[in-house]
C-alpha cells in the first residue's frame, strides 16, 4: 500500500499526446517539480487542463514556451502574455470555459458522471444552439432552456498537496486547494507531489481532503524557489 515512488519513473508513465490535468490557480497548488520533470523528459503534443497558464517562466508556461503543448483548456490566461501571444498567432490552441464550469466539468468526471445542466453563458457567444435543451426544472408549466455541459476527463492529473501519507491521503492548504481535489478525482492516473510525506495515521481521518482510493502515486519533493513568494508581488 505504499504509493511513494521516484519522480523519474512516475512522470515516464505519461506518453506524448496525453491529456494531463494540472492543479493550481496561478502559482499556489501548482505541482512545479512534477512539471519540471515532464519538461526534462521531453513528452510533447500534450493537452493540458489548468485554470490558467501560470506566469512566464513558471509551471506549465515552461512547457508551452518549449512547444510541448498543442492544446490548453483553461478559464483565464491573462497573467501569461507569452501564452496569449502564442494563442493569437495560432501556435497554441486554447479552449476557454467559465471558471466554475471548468471546475464543475472536472468534478463531474471525478464523480463518475457524464454531464450537468447549467444556465451560465447561455445567452453569450460561448454557447452553441446545439448545446441547449428544454427541461422541466420544477413543477412550473414552462420548460427552461438549459445548456448541457459534459464531463471533462483526463489520462493523468498532476497534483500538489500540502501533506500526504504513503497511502495517498491528501491535505491541501490555503488558496492552493483550488482545482487540486477535483482533478485528483477526475483523472485515470493521479500523481501527487508533496513536501510533507507522512506515515498513514498521521492525519485525523475527517480532515483528509482526498481519500487515497483516487491517488496512484505520491512523490516527495523539496522546496525550491518556484514555491516561494514571487518578488514582483510582495
Amino acid at each position: 500500500m505504499n504509493k511513494q515512488k521516484e519522480i523519474t519513473e512516475t512522470i515516464a508513465k505519461i506518453p506524448s499526446g496525453a491529456t494531463v490535468m494540472v492543479g493550481g490557480f496561478g502559482s499556489p497548488g501548482t505541482p512545479f517539480t512534477l512539471l519540471d520533470e515532464l519538461l526534462r523528459q521531453g513528452q510533447d503534443r500534450l493537452t493540458l487542463i489548468k485554470n490558467d497558464a501560470n506566469e512566464p517562466g513558471y509551471g506549465i508556461a515552461k512547457l508551452i514556451e518549449a512547444d510541448r503543448v498543442d492544446t490548453l483548456i483553461a478559464s483565464h490566461i491573462g497573467l501569461n502574455r507569452q501564452a496569449v501571444g502564442r494563442m493569437n498567432s495560432g501556435q497554441l490552441r486554447v479552449e476557454f470555459y467559465p471558471q466554475g464550469i471548468l471546475a464543475e466539468k472536472i468534478r463531474t468526471a471525478g464523480a463518475g458522471l457524464f454531464g450537468f445542466l447549467s444556465d451560465i453563458g447561455i445567452e453569450t457567444e460561448i454557447t452553441d444552439p446545439s448545446q441547449i435543451i428544454e427541461w422541466q426544472v420544477d413543477k412550473s408549466v414552462t420548460k427552461r432552456k438549459l445548456k448541457v455541459e459534459t464531463a471533462l476527463h483526463a489520462d493523468f492529473a498532476l497534483i500538489h498537496a500540502a501533506r500526504a501519507d504513503h497511502f495517498g491521503n491528501l491535505i491541501y492548504t490555503d488558496s492552493a486547494i483550488n482545482f487540486n481535489p477535483l482533478m485528483a478525482m477526475a483523472a485515470e492516473n493521479v500523481f501527487v507531489e508533496t513536501f510533507d510525506l507522512q506515515a498513514p495515521g498521521a492525519f485525523p481521518p475527517e480532515q483528509i481532503h482526498t481519500p487515497f482510493a483516487f491517488v496512484s502515486t505520491v512523490v516527495q519533493v523539496d522546496l525550491s524557489p518556484e514555491y516561494e513568494l514571487m518578488e514582483h508581488y510582495v
Binding site: 490558467d52 483553461a74 478559464s75 483565464h76 490566461i77 491573462g78 496569449v84 494563442m87 486554447v94 476557454f96 470555459y97 467559465p98 471558471q99 466554475g100 464550469i101 444556465d119 451560465i120 453563458g121 453569450t124 460561448i126
Partner: peptide, 14 residues
C-alpha cells in the same frame, strides 16, 4: 484581447 472568461460570466449572471 481575449485572455479568457475567468469567473466573470458566473459572477455577472448570479
Amino acid at each position: 484581447l481575449s485572455p479568457g472568461i475567468g469567473g466573470a460570466m458566473e459572477l455577472a449572471q448570479k
